[in-house]
Nucleic acid binder design. Sequence first.
DNA 1: CTGAAAGCGCTAACAA
DNA 2: TTGTTAGCGCTTTCAG
Lengths: 374, 374
Amino acid sequence: MPHPGKVSGYTMSSDISDLRKPGLTIHDVAKMAGVSAKTVSRVVNDEAGVSHEKRALIARIISEVGYYPHTGARSMRKPCRDSVGVTFPAPVEQSPLSQQFLLWLFAEIYRLFCKDGGFVCFDLNPFAKNRDEDYARGLWQQRYGACIVAGPLAVNDTTAHRIQASGHPYLAMGRLDSLPDISCATVDYEEAAYLSAKYLIDKGHKRIAMLRAFEGYQPGVERLRGYLRALEEAEIPFDENLVRPVTFDALHLASVTHRLLLDPTVTALIECSGSEDAASVREGARRAGRVPGQDFDVVVWTYTDNAAVLNEAAAHIWLPAREAAAEGLELLADWVQERRTDPIKVIYRPTLYHPSTDREIPKPKPLFDVLLNR
Amino acid sequence: MPHPGKVSGYTMSSDISDLRKPGLTIHDVAKMAGVSAKTVSRVVNDEAGVSHEKRALIARIISEVGYYPHTGARSMRKPCRDSVGVTFPAPVEQSPLSQQFLLWLFAEIYRLFCKDGGFVCFDLNPFAKNRDEDYARGLWQQRYGACIVAGPLAVNDTTAHRIQASGHPYLAMGRLDSLPDISCATVDYEEAAYLSAKYLIDKGHKRIAMLRAFEGYQPGVERLRGYLRALEEAEIPFDENLVRPVTFDALHLASVTHRLLLDPTVTALIECSGSEDAASVREGARRAGRVPGQDFDVVVWTYTDNAAVLNEAAAHIWLPAREAAAEGLELLADWVQERRTDPIKVIYRPTLYHPSTDREIPKPKPLFDVLLNR
DNA sequence: CTGAAAGCGCTAACAA
DNA sequence: TTGTTAGCGCTTTCAG
């Protein structure tokens, strides 16, 4: 423990409650040690050019008096690298943060960035004052020197461009058509959509419905693109009525599924909402008088390996998104510590398979569900 | 979306990739608008004294060009209040953060501090470089202007004194004997220990063992104090062998329970570890050839209302810690927004009762369990 | 090895 | 209503 107010070898007001508000400056320490501010600065920053004795004295004073450099002042000379930002490029209603994901992210960040004392700064609501607010404001404000962009990017996103141009280390959890060089770690959603559609086409289906999540966001575009590619290859005409936007809301999911399945010519469904919500799909089917696995084939997307989202599904697509993110974060840590300098590009391929377990994974809980409903 | 590089009414280099690294300054904006820096500052800070036209022009430029004030520079003039810090005064091994608690805390902070754009800065490992490191360093570094001290305080803590003296809004989740005025929201652990011991004494027990968690920390002291008070009142002599320190580790918990119950004169146990871990208590009893509820009476502490930690327990003590914290955080938000100025003092009383449900609550998962075992 | 001076971006105090 | 000046705490530059 530092013992403020008690420093041997010189005097200062020794009452614990006498510590002034904003805190000690480098000059205070310099005065106590009888040296210049620059010398203290050298000690603080582990720079050469200070005698052993002075260094020891200054270090002792710093520790005893509880001095810490003012990061604000420091950040005016060079960007601060001991803090990582986490920001969400889409409002939580549009892409709810799951509890599981948050816990995972937290633990990863702890391991990679905080073990030796780094800070993590969350920008939980960059859209507060202005819908169009820049989600990287913490970076421009120099709150942190690197950032994790957690969530889907809007197709017309410009903030990522600016982050990229700024040269700060960053990692987005998705690609962006308009920025091929984006630093990202993600899954190939286009391929996932292609695989899903191809699988169903090969099974003989021609009228394949798709729950298209993330409309207006890059992952939504990628889904559509993969779907279209598979249709084109099989020379099946595209019917836009078979692809409908969905949100993560269970009621909406069920209702869209219902409407899609009302069309009796539809014999297959790609559930690529990412909601991992079996109940809603069943409910939607039920309302349309359909039974998954009997009336129609389903391919469901999941973020969990070797687990079923919907037991009746014909096949599952596993999206190793978390695995990709893990590798990306590792590389981001390298970048922050200047062991690399270039944008990260980690893109994992999805896998189509028949689940080997009977256990159905539960729908993930959104972190802010209670709050959103208030 | 801001459209960097495209500002009508004046020219600037219009390529999106031309944005300089550290960002725009107030002077850049001033130059663009043809005004002084101070005028821009006024607009940014919603101060009076700028004509409507100029204000509008400047506001437009700011938004189009994507200017954000440098928080570092700003924090040199006045403490920054748009960021709350969260810090942990004890190493995670000594007081593991549960997943549930983190999720709850996150949601509360979001609701109270981030809804309109505030940041949250986590200091997950203040003890990185030096065991004795000051857990409030983020405050001295002016990273944030208010902080939440999440976890038990060491009995010899001095950092809380310094935070108190600094005048920053803060909330500790526990009291501190050496600082009666501490700003805190917590549960009366002394009372909980007193109630536990008294209940067992009234049932006729004389040799009451206690799993004493948080040794060296304030909550540990409070536990012992309440226990002693109850013994004293009943004129039962204190046997120090009946009170043993425990950690949150399941194996350790079982082994301490085992050793305590080996003494056949011990007829009761206060499980106040706070681990909510029924399995370990049973395992410890089993090893000693004892059965809770038959051989000996147990009082178990729980943080969840109206739920059993251990079904065989004679009684439960409910510690409304989360409820207290919720109120405390609410008051902290008031303090941050300058609707109050004094330290917070929220101390909820524990309740002794017999659980009305048969469901046993599961042991909470530590957030970093995986990581700690690496 | 050490220190003085300038300046980072911003705002309080003061002038105009 | 607007602008000028000084200085916050630090580090860079340059001179001892």
